[in-house]
Design a protein around this nucleic acid. Structure first.
Length: 140
DNA sequence: GCCAACGTTGGC
DNA sequence: GCCAACGTTGGC
């Protein structure tokens, strides 16, 4: 089992939008970054991840599950081979975790979210995942 | 609104 | 293949 982090501007695609999709989930399309794509290609069905609101809020708001492994992004053009995965909402973080808490936490300050702010789909270690769940007062 | 960080592009 | 210029993202 591996853990991940999906970043989105809430004005574009929010946690509420994601939750509205329910069990059906939604393709994480439009990723145009090789590192993010490579991360998606490593994802397995059943892996868990966080849903992060970037920009104004800067909060980890929920937990998602990968429900479909990588396939061709239908927004890719021509010979592009951009990939996407499907994710569904699993749980709210009872207490959303903000970026400042993450930066100040000794176990979290090395997260890719902190070190590589611009990466839209990042990996999270098991320890980081569990630490954030604890900060968020949430059990899965 | 500004700026730093980073990825991408294109000239050589 | 290198590197400067440029564009984009996201934190502040």
């Amino acid at each position: 089992m591996q853990y991940w982090l999906f970043k989105s501007e809430p004005g574009c695609w929010s946690w509420d939008d994601q939750k509205a999709k329910g069990q059906e989930g939604e393709p994480w399309d439009g990723v145009r970054n090789y590192q993010a794509r490579n991360n998606m290609m490593k994802m397995k069905k059943g892996d868990l991840g966080f849903f992060y609101h970037s920009q104004k809020q800067r909060l980890i708001v929920g937990v998602v599950e990968i429900i479909k492994e990588h396939y061709l992004d239908y927004t890719a053009e021509g010979d592009d081979r951009w990939q996407m995965v499907d994710i569904k909402a699993v749980a709210d973080l009872k207490k959303p975790v903000n970026l400042r808490e993450i930066k100040e936490h000794p176990d979290l300050e090395t997260m890719s979210l902190v070190k590589q702010g611009r990466l839209s789909v990042g990996a999270v270690t098991k320890k980081e995942f569990q630490t954030i769940l604890k900060l968020g007062d949430t059990n899965i």
